[in-house]
């Protein structure tokens, strides 16, 4: 997760400095941009995204952005993301140390409940199933543009084409299971993976996904 500070020019210079010192720092990593502390408008956000794109930093989601500054063509808005430690800035300079402190969010309390939710129909595009209390099982497919958000694990007896977010209230042990993986986005405990970052050989397969440290692991079920 990146949390830019104003003025943006200075912050970008520091980012360049950091990237220069550790080659490939942002390469191939999905980054969430945290703009909650940033007082900018849509145009400025657009410029910032362009600057980051020039540096090959791939932003897969924007967190803490007011709806008014979000625009078409921007990465989707997200909530409840966790700063991944491997993207944190080393505490080389005092300014960066302060930035690191700001990134640490209060740990969410895990909710333990033996609850589960069964959805007996396909989840259609635009529908959102939110069940923070426990597992969600879908008997059918999850369409492109639909999402399942579960406090526990997500089980899909069909094709997962939309988004599945497991462990949404802070449960690193949650998993995602699906009979056929065509997902747009997968998340476990706030760690995200977009379709572009998934191994192509998993597409169309029965797959389970879990969290190992700060990366999502996947394996075929058959």
């Amino acid at each position: 997760m990146l949390s830019p500070e104003l003025p943006l020019d200075d912050w970008l210079a520091r980012l360049d400095d950091l990237a220069g010192r550790s080659a490939g720092f942002f390469l191939e990593r999905p980054i969430v941009l945290d703009v909650a502390e940033l007082d900018i408008d849509r145009t400025q956000l657009k410029e910032l995204l362009a600057e980051l794109a020039n540096r090959n930093v791939r932003i897969m989601g924007i967190e803490g952005g007011r709806p008014s500054i979000m625009g078409p063509g921007m990465p989707p808005a997200m909530r409840g993301g966790r700063p991944a430690p491997d993207v944190e800035v080393p505490a080389a300079e005092p300014a960066q140390a302060a930035e690191k402190a700001a990134e640490v969010l209060p740990e969410a309390q895990p909710i333990r409940a033996p609850a589960s939710m069964i959805v007996r129909e396909p989840v259609r595009s635009g529908q959102s199933i939110i069940f923070p209390e426990g597992d969600v099982t879908v008997i059918g497919s999850v369409a492109s543009g639909a999402e399942i958000i579960a406090g526990g694990s997500v089980h899909i007896y069909g094709t997962l084409r939309g988004r599945a977010l497991a462990g949404s209230v802070g449960n690193a042990g949650a998993r995602i299971f699906c009979r056929r993986l065509e997902a747009e986005l997968l998340a476990i405990d706030g760690v995200y993976k977009t379709a572009e970052d998934m191994a192509p050989d998993l597409r169309g397969q029965a797959v389970q996904l879990w969290l190992d440290g700060d990366s999502i692991k996947a394996e075929r079920l058959n």
Partner: peptide, 16 residues
């Protein structure tokens, strides 16, 4: 085609 199919899926959700 994919965009029509996705929009139809959305409409089916509304019908339900």
């Amino acid at each position: 085609e994919v965009s029509s199919v996705r929009d139809s899926d959305r409409i089916i959700g509304l019908l339900d």
